[in-house]
Amino acid sequence: MLPYPHINPVGFHIGPIPIHWYGLLEIISFVIGTLWLIRRGRRPQWDWTKEQVLDLEYYLSVGAIAGGRAGYILWYDLPYYIGHPLDMLKVWDGGMSFHGGLIGVILGCWAYGRKQGRSTMKVLDFVAPAAPIGLGLGRLANFINDQLFGRVSHLPWAIIFPAGGPQPRQPSQIYEFLLEGVLLLVILVVYGRRPRPAGAVGSLFVVCYGLFRFLVEFTREPDIQLGFVWGRLDMGQILSIPMILAGLALLYWAYRGGFETPGSAHPGEGAS
C-alpha cells in the first residue's frame, strides 16, 4: 500500500486569495495548449493565425463549460437539479461531465467553422492533440483534491484516500492521467505526424478517449448518487460506448474521404 501524499489543495496565496492547484493546473494546461496550438497553426498545412487560435479557444471554452455542466445535470443528477433549478448555475460547486464537455467542444468547433468557413472535422483535427494536456492535468488535480478516487483494492499500489475512508483504493486518477493524458497525447502526436485524411485525428481522439475511459471506469468508484447503472457498468462507461462506436464510424468515414472539402489544397493535415 502506498501513502497518500497529502498535497495541500491550495498551492499558494496571492494576498488574501487562495490559489487552488485545481484551478492552477487548469490555467497551466490552457496556456500550454494555447501556445502549442499557436505554434502548430503557423505550419503551412494548418494556416491558423494567432488571433484565430485565440478566437477558437473562446468558442471551445464556452462549449466545454456549458456542455460539461449540461451533461452532468442530464446524465448524473437530473432529479436533484429538477428540484433545485437554480443550482444548475452553481458551476463552482462542482459537477462537470467530460462527455457533455466534448459535445460542447464539437459544437464550438462547428460554430467557429461556420464563421470561418472551415469544416468542423478539420477544426477538431487541429485542436484534438492539445486536449490530452488539459485532461491529464485535470486528473492530477483530482488526485491532489482527494476526489474521484478508485474502488476498494488491496493491490500493492493502492492508496488510502482521506475522503474515501479507511480502506485502500485504486488510484484511478493516476491511471486516467497516464491513459487519457500521457498515452493519448503520444498517440495523437505520433499519428498526426504524417498527413492524415480530414477528420481522422479528431475521430481517433474520440475512439481512444472512449476506450481508455471505459477501461479505467472498472477501477473507479461510481458516482455515489448513481452507483452502477447497467449491470456492472457505470454512467462513465455507458457514455463511453457510443464514443467508441461513433469514433470508429467517423474514422472509417474519414478514410473514405467523407470529410474532405472539395477543392481543398490540403487533403491530409498533420498534428505535431
Partner: peptide
C-alpha cells in the same frame, strides 16, 4: 473577443 480575420487562402466553405 474580437473576431478573427479570414485568411486570404482560407479553405472553401464546408
Amino acid at each position: 473577443r474580437p473576431a478573427a480575420h479570414m485568411p486570404a487562402n482560407a479553405a472553401p466553405p464546408p
